[in-house]
Design a protein around this nucleic acid. Structure first.
Length: 381
DNA sequence: CTTAGGG
DNA sequence: CCCTAAG
């Protein structure tokens, strides 16, 4: 089992930015060792995803997507990347890789929305598979050197999901859906997210009955691909075949587009960190900027969503601050243990930026510790 | 259209 | 997450 601890530093390459703090960009060398296992895992085609491919009819070649790759990559707009000296070691090939990744995910999203299925992003393993198959192994290796997953250097939002892997994340991430109703509907929140390997291509409903769907890509699917994200590409899988079946089994509830809270996607730790990074760069309140620069590829996560998340983070960090009581323990047993480091950063940023909470003065932070640790925050816009 | 706030 | 008001 891999245990990728989130010793991510402020300047993590997730967003392709350079922080004004010490470390910046590319993965730190000390992470290489940790990643080696994962790399090996990725390099080994032992996991037969071809079944999934054919099942979904998502074979890149089959769809002739490869031919359109150039078009895609050329039309992709990276102009949003500020010149923070932030270089993302992202070659054209990397971009294509990322695009392939996104495209596949785009189809998945399409499927999810249209069919109402949440086949979960387990299928992203398919993407990896394809990537690994289409790219020169050496090349892939290079890509991976930029991080646990080469495409993680893809300049947009947190492509670092891989790093967050670890069991801790899945524990944490599957909690964020408060309503059991959605949890059920999303299925993947129960077990899907966090384990992306799906040895079995069969999609089953909760009763174990196999279901068949038309996964052929649609016209607008392609269009959507351009802006689809791959945020939920966790890699914390440990091939627990026992759970793999649950990963895929998805329940389709009678939810329509009219329903509010359509797909409440839980925020991953990576996203949160990306958000924190974004806030440190642009400051609180510049949510469109943060969205465009740090969550560009995240179709969901509107500026408002980001703002909301920040609001919640503040609350979380606040709660985390002074509650060591018994109520906390009870809460923690059910909820995810939001990484302390993140909460610290949140608190730090919060002390720096006054959130426009005109009335709620319930967010009080002692500026004592945050000042001592301060030095990485830039200036407000 | 973007943000702040409240639901 | 959603909706709305306000700039």
């Amino acid at each position: 089992m891999w245990t990728f601890r989130m010793d991510r530093t402020p300047g993590f390459p997730a967003a392709g930015f350079k922080c004004d703090s010490v470390d910046d960009n590319v993965c730190h060398s000390n992470e290489y060792n940790k990643m080696s296992d994962m790399k090996r895992f990725l390099m080994e085609p032992t996991h037969d995803n071809t079944a999934v491919d054919s099942f979904l009819g998502l074979g890149m070649e089959t769809m002739g997507l490869s031919s359109t790759m150039d078009e895609f990559s050329h039309g992709f707009d990276f102009s949003f990347l500020p010149d923070y000296g932030g270089l993302y070691s992202c070659t054209t090939q990397d971009v294509e890789a990322g695009l392939k990744f996104e495209i596949l995910d785009g189809f998945l999203d399409e499927v999810e929305e249209v069919e109402g299925i949440y086949a979960s992003h387990d299928l992203s393993s398919t993407s990896n598979h394809i990537l690994l198959e289409t790219q020169d192994k050496k090349k892939v290796s290079e890509l991976l050197d930029g991080g646990p997953y080469g495409l993680m250097n893809f300049p947009s939002e947190s492509y670092s999901p891989g790093i967050s892997g670890s069991t801790g994340l899945s524990e944490w991430s599957k909690e964020t859906v408060p309503h059991a109703e959605h949890q059920n509907a999303l299925g993947l929140n129960e077990a899907g997210i966090g384990r992306r390997i799906c040895p079995t291509p069969l999609i089953e409903d909760s009763s174990g009955q196999r279901m068949s769907y038309d996964f052929r890509p649609r016209k607008d699917a392609m269009k959507k691909c351009m802006h689809t994200s791959t945020e939920n590409t966790f890699r914390d899988d440990h091939l627990t075949s026992s759970e793999s079946e649950d990963d895929i089994s998805v329940t389709k509830t009678s939810r329509t587009r009219s329903d509010r809270r359509k797909h409440q996607r839980m925020w991953t730790v990576d996203e949160v960190m990306t958000l924190v990074d974004g806030i440190s760069h642009f400051g609180v309140g510049k949510w469109t900027d943060i969205k465009n620069n740090f969550f560009h590829s995240a179709t969901h996560r509107t500026p408002v969503d980001i703002r909301d998340k920040w609001r919640n983070l503040l609350k979380a960090s606040y709660n985390d601050k002074h509650n060591d009581g018994e109520a906390e323990e009870r809460r923690k047993s059910l909820a995810r243990p939001m990484p302390k480091d993140i909460l610290h950063r949140v608190r730090e940023l919060a002390s720096r930026h006054p959130y426009p909470f005109s009335k709620s003065s319930c967010f009080v932070y002692d500026s004592s510790r945050s000042q001592s640790t301060s030095k990485k925050k830039k200036k407000r816009s």
